[in-house]
Nucleic acid binder design. Structure first.
Lengths: 219, 219
DNA sequence: GAATGTGAAGGTTTTCACAGCA
DNA sequence: TGCTGTGAAAACCTTCACATTC
């Protein structure tokens, strides 16, 4: 990029900051349930095992939400963060690959609670096509492109074997979807402007294995 | 810690480096399958979307595995990394909470392929206790402590509702287990010397939501 | 007095760039 | 010549410390 004007300038916010916002959001939900009206950076930090300065810095990237001497208003801050993260709306999601992991995710309450609504399922297995999971009928992967468009799908979750992942991602991108969550242990290519995140459930077990073998000192 | 001698001195290796080792390991498995005998940091980097310098630096923390002018020997490097990560052995794992996610994980091939063997299941639901998942009979959570010890369990995977997670972790720690993978969206406390990792599947969807809403430029 | 918001300091991770070796 | 191994530089992220505000 050789030039920019003030409207397309945006300070790069780190991935860690965004992940911590998710955590603050959850902490605030539980404070709201408890009936707390305000919370200090110190309290928020303690509940998430962070430093107060970290909490304040993270929030300061997006505005000044607190009151000096008092702290942050729980409900308002929750609303602000939900807006920043795009959690103040519903997302229409399709899930491809209704195997072990896939069908577990269809029933995963945490997704729907946060506004992530799985509304379409796809598979290539004739025995699965037409079957019903939590009220959603599994579609044939053949009709992927048109059905993704017709259903107004904005995000796709990929739960297929590793060898099928790349060509499915290609199809999904062709259908105009710009956000993909991939559970297959594969490094996938997507064009610029498409957001891809990977969820690798073995990785954390491998970290534990490393920690035990090396008696690694936990930070 | 107020003093150390050379034998317990260990340079702190970053979490990111360990996670990248997992990725190199998988890449090497696939290179081995392809029959490649050597690989350069450049090739490894490209396949994982990293820089060659990053690959070399990561590996250099653990030794000099390559040959100048040539690259790294695929099979030997794979063996070395598997040893560093503790993947050259089997781990005996218990899974607590045989719900959606829990029962999907029991059948998750990637775990067993990597030497993570789920050998015990626990639940507190009478309808589940005694039932059979992939050849493993679900035990009553009441007998957790003795059964964990008798089975020689080294790692525990927690897939229970958020409100049950902390006291179960406490019991697991009391039973002498030092590595825990937690799928509940809770911030759990463990004493020093116990390794806890969290797997939060909503977090990456939230990141995608943030990216779409802010049209965040992907790095 | 209490707690935010934020430049500056400090620390960590990544990248650069090149000496050294096959 | 080609590619590793690695100090040094650059980039990035976290923490400090304090002026500011309620």
């Amino acid at each position: 990029m050789s030039s920019f004007n003030s409207s397309d300038f945006k300070k790069k916010i780190s991935e860690s900051t965004i992940h911590r916002l998710s955590r603050y959001f959850r902490a605030l939900e539980s404070l709201e349930k408890k009936g707390d009206e305000t919370v200090s950076s110190k309290e928020l930090a303690r509940s998430e095992k962070l430093t107060p300065a970290q909490v304040r810095k993270d929030l300061s990237f997006f505005g000044s939400f607190g009151t000096r001497g008092l702290g942050y208003p729980v409900i308002e801050l929750k609303i602000r963060i939900s807006h920043i993260l795009g959690l103040d709306r519903e997302w229409r999601i399709a899930l491809i690959g209704v195997g072990n992991i896939g069908s577990a995710l269809v029933s995963y309450k945490e997704f729907s609670r946060q506004g992530f609504k799985i509304v379409k399922l796809f598979d290539n297995d004739q025995r699965k096509i037409g079957s019903n999971h939590k009220g959603i009928v599994v579609s044939d992967i053949k009709n992927l492109s048109t059905e993704l468009k017709d259903a107004g799908i904005e995000m796709v979750v990929i739960c297929v074997p590793v060898q099928d992942a790349q060509y499915l991602v290609d199809d999904v991108v062709k259908a105009g979807v710009r956000a993909i969550l991939n559970f297959a242990p594969a490094v996938l290519k997507v064009p610029d402007g498409v957001f891809l995140r990977n969820e690798n459930m073995s990785m954390e077990l491998e970290y534990l294995s490393y920690a035990l073998v090396n008696n690694h000192v936990q930070k």
